[in-house]
């Protein structure tokens, strides 16, 4: 598929500045740099500050990574790289 110029939105729900938050953000940032031909638009949502969005997206476990429009989601600090890579690659099919 060739949706190259459209940036794919990503939402990462975290809670405050917990160590797990920092680890997840860093893991995601590194993974995204591997995709040279794809553009992503990452938004980080702090559940403490924006509970309404967490409720709307049914996020109670943090960190949670999801792509609006896809039913799939990743929970955890994204330290399992292969899971994260597979998740990001298959978003091409959107």
């Amino acid at each position: 598929m060739n949706a190259s110029n459209e940036a794919i939105p990503l939402l990462l729900f975290v809670v405050g500045d917990a160590p797990r938050t920092a680890v997840a953000v860093e893991n995601l940032r590194l993974a995204l740099t591997e995709f040279r031909d794809r553009k992503f638009q990452l938004e980080i949502v702090d559940v403490f500050e924006n509970a309404g969005r967490a409720i709307a997206d049914r996020v109670l476990v943090t960190p949670t990574l999801l792509a609006p429009g896809s039913s799939r989601r990743l929970v955890g600090d994204l330290s399992e790289k292969s899971q994260l890579r597979y998740f990001l690659q298959t978003l091409d099919g959107l």
Partner: peptide, 11 residues
Amino acid sequence: TVESGSFDLGG
């Protein structure tokens, strides 16, 4: 939902 690393119920 797929697990990738550790998570908690902070949310």
